[in-house]
């Protein structure tokens, strides 16, 4: 299957703007990384280099922080994120089944992988989204869904894909203009961040 490059092109002016907003001290490390990840979905090496050269934060501190906190990731992600909650209530109500079902729909077979080969979706396990009474829960983009069976999860994924112009692997024949799709999804991500 064709592999899509998910590497982001970093906008230096944006990084400079964030440094202005959050400052150059050591304490700005976490907010700066959060801003970068909100924009690109992960921490591109380029952006981290810009932060190191533009602030008093050292490379070792920044990399140390980036690898310590589970929110941060160093690898590119798909155009849309699916967060599967693995809190206690979700675990006992069958959260694992949601992962199995979603991985099936996205054709992800390798255990070490979490992104569909066409770059459409990335599945991320999260500790708890705080909707324990609706367990098991997942969040696609900015939509939270609760009380799910594996089949429900697949249904919501399909609906989300249809609405956002995405295609699940194996359905590529229905593919439309990819550029439009990328634009649409990056808009979605920004919308999510603003909310």
């Amino acid at each position: 299957m064709e592999q899509h490059s998910l590497e982001a092109v970093v906008d230096e002016a944006l990084v400079r703007k964030w440094i202005e907003e959050y400052g150059s001290d050591a304490s700005a490390a976490v907010p700066l990384l959060q801003a970068v990840q909100n924009e690109y979905g992960y921490l591109p090496r380029e952006a981290m280099d810009m932060i190191v050269s533009g602030t008093r934060i050292t490379a070792s501190q920044l990399y140390g922080v980036a690898t310590f906190y589970s929110q941060f990731r160093l690898d590119p992600v798909g155009r849309n994120m699916i967060k599967v909650c693995h809190g206690t209530a979700c675990h006992v109500s069958g959260a694992d089944r949601l992962n199995t079902a979603l991985r099936q729909s996205l054709g992800i077979k390798d255990d070490a992988e979490d992104t569909a080969s066409n770059g459409s979706y990335t599945i991320e396990d999260v500790a708890c989204v705080g909707c324990c009474s609706l367990a098991p829960v997942m969040v696609i983009g900015d939509e939270t869904h609760g009380n799910l069976s594996g089949a429900d999860a697949q249904r919501h994924l399909k609906k989300h894909a249809r609405r956002n112009g995405e295609f699940l692997p194996g359905h590529e024949e229905e593919k439309s203009d990819e550029a439009a799709r990328t634009r649409q999804s990056s808009e979605n991500r920004k919308k999510e961040v603003r909310q």
């Binding site: 693995h86 809190g87 206690t88 209530a89 675990h91 500790a127 708890c128 705080g130 909707c131 324990c132």
Partner: peptide, 12 residues
């Protein structure tokens, strides 16, 4: 920083 993966009183 409500970290207990089964609690949501702080969120609420």
């Amino acid at each position: 920083d409500e970290g207990d993966p089964g609690a949501f009183m702080d969120r609420s």
